[in-house]
Design a protein around this nucleic acid. Structure first.
Length: 635
RNA sequence: GCCCCUGUAGCUCAGUCGGCAGAGCGCGUCCUUGGUAAGGACGAGGUCGGCGGUUCAAAUCCGCUCGGGGGCUCCA
């Protein structure tokens, strides 16, 4: 169903008749790419070549794998085509003529299918530039010479029609802009983006480590990164305490039956680490000579017992709720945990901290009455807002995921869904930010509200999420005693304002370019003695800072001041205190500050401690957080 | 999982035609004791991701495998 939607999307991308001027330019570049490849590799079978938000691509089927040198040659050929100043000409024709033209050009592997996508009655058209003829609804620029500022970027695999059951094609990506300047700026922006890649900064600033001996997609939080994470957790915990949450701890595994009840096993089997089978069962199976297939069957049937690394925290929290009877007077019950979960992500999907196999959700489950749903959802949204605004993540959109009216996949009564969707819609409306309602985006167990944050490089990430759930309370037969002295079914709300600590910190690293606000900085203050004679004084200053709860170190190396300053700058320490003979004499320190220039100058250590303590207490963002720069994709 | 690219010191990277393993940063020792982004000298540090093959000889060529990257697919 997903691929059907994507198929339709690509249909619109290639046949939508009216494009923006920038899209026209890029789409024309794609045709020139197709033409260049046909010149150099006449046997290439072409699929489609649409413009994208960042540039354009064209998909080719060819036995020879494109090399980096090929890309250079293809780009040269495109420049030649640009110089040839070919006219883009539109030709309209009947379906029969189209079939004939496709056969004539020899593009019989994919183009007939693309032709068949065009609904009966719709005008069929080709575009010609030079010798190159391509089935295409347009539109295009008038001459190839208008496409001057372009660059081919890389080649990647892509399944025909986005379906992994289909043949994999070679997709050549490129980008194009109206002017050379704009192209160069875009390429420079991409270079800048690389510099703030969290994988690179994570290494440079020693924030985290992924060790191949430990395993793919498993994050080792090194001391610096652990500080950032701990500060974020403390920040959330403060809010949870104030808003009536109770903290719980649960183990990393649970009985398979728990997940059979929840419906997650074996339904999501492929996305989980394999189960841990009980020793006796395993030995028995081995004695019987039972193969893997049979083991899998028995695990699914429930005739073999075992445990599962938890892929989510809900069942554990549910069992905590169910461990005691509840009166309606107790509700809502709000259980929170920084709960670590494990999911078997496909190896090709893993990426630094943003896509991993073990991660910690800042999770909570709220158990409430139907009447409390709106209020509780509002509370959750408020928390997400506080989180985003405290961290300066101001560029986000809100997506309300609703049922797909035509689908049968949803569980729960219609009245419940109506109520929950109304609650989500009403809650989102109070946010004061734009939100979109998207049918079919609901989870199978209930509607949800997602916060999609756009990072400094313009990519979108789903972070905070609030989900209303009727399904699990039903499956686990949860109840509370209502005022009528009869059992009632509670509603569950799942929410995670950060999403996961790993992904959130990864995105924060890029958002701040490693330049964390002081409250999150692994090291907040570096004391720099001017010479060895002052090392002891520097250590004494550090002791006073640490006693005041400030993360500080001193640099007692035998380098010159400039080198020490440079080292502190590169480590992105927000405040530096230079201690020389003059300062010692005056009983002061000289403040050099990346974080807050108003701190700079000579002041006593007490003054400075007061300033930094306030900065940290208020979780102030530094003044020079780089403003979000969405890519200049709009024409 | 699939396609393509890639793997040399803690980090960033050079290594030509197959012929003794290199640089900068970092680290250690010593000299230097200074005023806001790099003072100097010496030194330690390597199973060239792993396994196998071709060869008189492999970081270099081939196969397999593990990890990383760019995409596709996926993401309860």
């Amino acid at each position: 169903m997903e691929s059907l939607a994507k198929g339709l999307l690509s249909h619109f991308m290639s046949y939508r008749p009216q494009m923006t001027p920038l899209e026209e330019l890029r789409h024309s570049a794609a045709h020139m790419l197709g033409a260049a490849v046909r010149r150099l590799f006449p046997q290439a079978q072409l699929d489609i070549g649409p413009p994208t938000e960042q540039g354009f691509y064209y998909d080719f089927d060819l036995d020879h794998a494109f090399t980096a040198e090929d890309l250079v040659k293809i780009e040269e050929e495109m420049r030649r085509i640009s110089k040839e100043n070919q006219k883009f000409e539109r030709m309209e024709c009947s379906r029969e003529e189209a079939e004939r033209l496709i056969a004539e050009t020899g593009q019989t592997r994919y183009k007939p299918g693309r032709l068949a996508d065009i609904p009966a009655g719709e005008q069929i058209s080709f575009y010609r530039n030079g010798e190159f003829l391509d089935l295409c609804a347009g539109s295009h620029v008038r001459y190839t010479s208008q496409v001057k500022a372009f660059k081919l970027l890389h080649v990647a695999g892509a399944y025909h029609r986005g379906d992994e059951k289909n043949r994999q094609l070679q997709r050549i990506y490129g980008t194009a802009y109206p002017t050379k300047d704009e192209l160069e700026q875009a390429l420079a922006r991409a270079e800048e983006a690389k510099k703030r890649d969290h994988r690179r900064l994570g290494k440079e600033l020693k924030l985290f480590h992924i060790d191949e001996k430990v395993g793919q997609g498993l994050i080792l939080w090194t001391p610096n990164g652990a500080v950032v994470r701990q500060q974020l957790q403390d920040f959330i915990s403060e809010h949870l305490f104030r808003t009536g949450y109770k903290q719980v701890f649960t183990p990393h595994i649970g009985n398979l039956d728990l997940y059979r009840t929840s419906g997650h096993f074996p339904y999501y089997k492929d996305a989980q680490f394999p189960p841990l089978v009980e020793r006796e069962a395993m030995e028995l199976l081995a004695k019987e000579g039972c193969g893997c297939g049979e083991l899998t069957n028995r695990l699914s049937e429930g005739t073999v017992q075992g445990f599962l690394l938890k892929p989510m925290n809900c069942p554990h929290h549910i069992r905590i709720f169910a461990s005691q009877p509840h009166s309606y007077r107790d509700l809502p019950v709000r259980l929170a945990e920084f709960g670590t979960v494990y999911r078997w992500e496909q190896s090709g999907e893993l990426n630094g901290m943003t896509r991993v196999r073990g991660f910690t959700q800042d999770d909570a489950h709220l158990f409430c009455t139907e009447d409390q749903v709106l209020g509780e959802v509002l509370g959750c949204l408020e928390l997400v807002k506080v989180v985003l605004s405290t961290l300066g993540l101001s560029d986000y959109r809100v997506r309300v995921g609703l049922r797909d009216p035509d689908s049968q996949k949803y569980t729960g009564a219609k009245e419940n869904w109506d109520k929950a969707e109304a609650a989500c819609r009403a809650a989102a409306a109070t946010l004061g930010v734009k939100f979109t309602e998207e049918a079919g985006e609901a989870a199978f167990y209930g509607p949800k509200i997602d916060f999609v944050v756009r990072d400094v490089i313009g990519r979108e990430w789903q972070l905070g999420t609030v989900q209303v759930d009727f399904n699990l309370p039903e499956r686990f037969d949860l109840s509370y005693i209502g005022p009528d002295n009869r059992p009632h079914r509670p509603v569950m709300i799942h929410r995670a304002p950060f999403g996961s600590m790993e992904r959130f910190v990864g995105i924060l690293i890029e958002h701040f370019a490693g330049d964390f606000p002081t409250w999150l900085s692994p090291e907040q203050v570096r004391v720099i003695p001017l010479n060895d004679d002052l090392n002891a004084d520097a250590d004494a200053a550090v002791a006073r800072l640490v006693a005041a709860g400030i993360r500080a170190t001193s640099d007692g190396s035998s380098d010159k001041l400039g080198a020490k300053i440079r080292r502190a700058e590169l480590s992105k320490v927000p405040h530096m205190l230079v201690l020389g003979a003059k300062e010692k004499e005056a009983g002061q320190v000289n403040v050099r500050s990346r974080a807050d220039k108003s701190f700079e100058g000579n002041r006593t250590l007490e003054d400075f401690i007061g300033l930094v303590s306030a900065e940290v207490r208020e979780r102030r963002l530094k003044a020079h957080v780089p403003a979000a720069q969405p890519p200049a994709a709009k024409g």
